[in-house]
Design a protein around this nucleic acid. Sequence first.
DNA 1: GATTTAATGGTATGAACTACACTTTTATTC
DNA 2: GAATAAAAGTGTAGTTCATACCATTAAATC
Lengths: 226, 226
Amino acid sequence: MTDKYYANEPSFHVAVDCIIFGFDEDRLQVLFQHRNIEPFNGELTPLGGFVQEDETLDEAAYRVLTERTGIKDLFLEQLEAFGDINRDPGGRVISVAYYALLDKANYDKKLLEKFNCKWMDANDLPALYFDHMKMMKKAINRLQDKITYTPIALKLLPQEFTMSQIQKLYEAILDEKLDKRNFRKKVGEMPYFTKTGKIDKSTSKRGAAIYFFDYKMYQEHKDYHI
Amino acid sequence: MTDKYYANEPSFHVAVDCIIFGFDEDRLQVLFQHRNIEPFNGELTPLGGFVQEDETLDEAAYRVLTERTGIKDLFLEQLEAFGDINRDPGGRVISVAYYALLDKANYDKKLLEKFNCKWMDANDLPALYFDHMKMMKKAINRLQDKITYTPIALKLLPQEFTMSQIQKLYEAILDEKLDKRNFRKKVGEMPYFTKTGKIDKSTSKRGAAIYFFDYKMYQEHKDYHI
DNA sequence: GATTTAATGGTATGAACTACACTTTTATTC
DNA sequence: GAATAAAAGTGTAGTTCATACCATTAAATC
C-alpha cells in the first residue's frame, strides 16, 4: 500500500468486536470467548480480532465470525467505532463493533470448544472488560429497534419455524410478553410468512403449523412490519 | 503509548469526516471544504482530518468541527466507520463518519473563508469523491429518523424561534410538506416548547409568537415526540 | 378604511393498536 | 374408550392516534 501522502499522520491498530446473538428455546443469548492474549488473558470477551491490511472492516468481522463459528448464513451489521484512548490497556486500539444474528443449531460444536467459546444468557451477562458492556447495550438496543421494522430476527431461527417460536423469539429480544392474538394477526398479514403445510408435533399434542420465510417475496413487499 | 502486546498487528491511518448540517430560511445545507491535500486537491469534501494519538474519535471530530467553524454549541454524533481498502486512493485510511448540527448564524465568516469552506444545498450536492456520498446519505437518513423522536433539529435554529421556523426546518429535513395545524398541535402538546412572550414581526405584519426550547424541562419529559 | 400577509385554532374520519377468553386438536393416561 | 392435559388457534369491541381539511384574526401598509 502506497502511503506517500499521509506518511506523517499517526496510525493505530484497528480491531473488530462482534456481538453475536443466538436463540435457545426461549432465551436470547450472546457468544463469548475466553480471551487468549494479554492483558486480561482468560477473561470473557466478545469475539474479536485485528483488522488486517488486505481486508475491509466488514470482511474482518465476517472472517472472525466464520472462522470461529463456521456459519456463513448470518446477519451482520456494524454498530459503531469505539476509540477511547485507554479503552484497551494493552495498547491503543480502535475497535469497530458489529453485531450478528445466527442460528445456533448450525453451530459446529467442535469449533465452539476449539475456540473456547461460550453462550451466555443476554439477561445474565458476565462482568465485561474494556468498553464491551457499552457495545453489548448498543447491540441489544439496535436489535430491539430493528426487529420492529425488519425481519432480521428470523436469522436466529431455523429456516422453518412455528408461530409460537417467532413469538417467543420476539418476547426474548424485546424482553416483554406479547399478546398472542395480536402478534399472530400482524404476522399473518405479511404475505411472506408462508405455511409449509408441515406440522410440528414436538411441542404440543395438537401440533403447530410450520412456516417458512419467503425472502424473495420479502424483497417485493417490504411494507409490512412486525 | 506502550504497544508490547499488539506490536505484530498492522496499523492504519484513521480519519474523521464530519457531515455538518446548517439551515437557512427554508433549506437544509451541508458544509464542505476544498480539500487541501493530494490526491483530489481542491475538490469538495466534508470536513475531515486525521485522528491524533492524544485524542479519542469524538474528540477528533469535535476538534475538526470547532477549529473550522468556531462553534461549540452543537450536536455531534457518530454515524459509522468506513474501511474499504481502496476508499482513499492516497493510502489506506479508515474513516469514522460523524454528523453535526449547528446554528449557521453563529458561524464566524472569517473562519469560513480562512478554511475555504462552503455551504451547499442538501438537495443539490456537488459530485463527491471516495465514499463521501455514502456518508451523506447515511447522515441524512439518520437525521430524518432522529428528528421524529428527539428535538435535536433545534440545534439548527437560534435559541429563539417561531412555529413557522420549526415547521420549515422539519419540512426541509424531511423533504416534504407538513400540515400546519397538525404540526402545531403536536408541538403545542410538548411542555418544553415555551412562549417567551416576545413577538417576531420580521416575517409578517401580524407577528408570530417567539418560543424557546426548555432543555431542562425536556430532560424530565422526554415522552413527547414531534 | 381597504388591502395584504402570515399566524392562529378545531373537528370529523379512518386506521391502527390494545385488551381480552374460549374452542380445537390430539396424544396420553387410566 | 373416556377423561385429561397441553399447547394451538381464533374475533371483536373500544380506544387511541394520525390525517385531512379553511375560516378568522391581527397588524402593518397604502
